[in-house]
């Protein structure tokens, strides 16, 4: 379909202090081959040409890997298609005449900056608290093949490391919990021999920062895993809890 007409209900908020509200727009001539953000480009071009302010939204790579885009579409983080970021969502998932609700990723720890842009720097601060292995760049580390790593562990570490830090898990969770995000990072390192040395401390420090940022607790609903565009598995939260528990016992 090359000529869809859509009604968009979009969250507009001038700045962090503004109260904000939903505003209605119409767009026409939308092709099913457009990405969702290209549809937003059409809307913004329309707004600019009529002298209005375009809708502000985060986006960059537009190929599903940078984690910038963050829209809550029709009540779902990144919209209706599983395993897909907003930028990879295409208009063929919608029909002519549809009304689409577009909101920012909402959470106490993700305050709105403007329109659909939220501040996710809390995620960075959690990483500062322990999202690393403490080694310097020397050029004298041991040979990369000196320590074989079972393929299974390497693959599981990679699965956890695929997290793009978009925050869909937080936006989806009824408690605004960041456990899937933290669990993914803790798991990546816990599964690799290089990460073992600091493993217990890391889990404690990152969780403490997560709590300080105002993210909620995990009640094992599992919505985060369903909405995660990279399919990060719930078992990573179990692994995080294991690291946390064993760390607090010693």
């Amino acid at each position: 379909m090359d000529n869809m007409n859509l009604t968009l209900k979009i969250w507009r908020q001038k700045n962090a202090q503004d109260k904000g509200k939903m505003t209605d727009y119409n767009v026409t001539g939308i092709s099913e081959h457009m990405s969702f953000l290209e549809m937003m480009d059409v809307l913004n071009e329309q707004l600019i040409n009529s002298g209005d302010e375009p809708v502000a939204f985060d986006h960059d790579c537009r190929e599903g890997i940078c984690g910038s885009c963050s829209m809550f579409i029709n009540g779902e983080a990144h919209g209706p298609v599983k395993g897909t970021t907003t930028c990879q969502l295409h208009m063929r998932s919608f029909s002519d005449g549809d009304t689409i609700y577009i909101e920012p990723f909402r959470a106490k720890a993700f305050p709105v900056i403007k329109d659909l842009i939220v501040d996710r720097s809390a995620f960075d601060r959690i990483q500062h608290a322990g999202g690393y292995i403490s080694i310097n760049t020397s050029g004298n580390t041991q040979d990369a093949n000196a320590t074989p790593i079972p393929k299974e562990n390497a693959d599981l570490a990679m699965d956890a490391a695929m997290c793009i830090g978009c925050g869909a898990c937080v936006a989806t969770c009824k408690n605004s919990s960041a456990m899937l995000f933290v669990g993914a990072k803790v798991s990546q390192y816990a599964l690799l021999p290089q990460g073992q040395v600091e493993s217990k401390m890391r889990a404690q420090n990152m969780v403490a920062q997560m709590d300080a940022e105002g993210f909620g607790n995990c009640t094992n609903t599992g919505a985060c895993m369903v909405e995660c565009p990279k399919g990060i598995d719930l078992s990573n939260i179990a692994r995080l809890n294991r690291e946390l528990l064993s760390g607090s016992l010693t």
């Binding site: 990369a144 074989p148 393929k151 390497a154 693959d155 990679m158 290089q194």
Partner: peptide
Amino acid sequence: DQCVAQGVPFARDYGG
């Protein structure tokens, strides 16, 4: 060497 030490999960074969 540096990236492996940092915990970059490169692809591995069955021998590790």
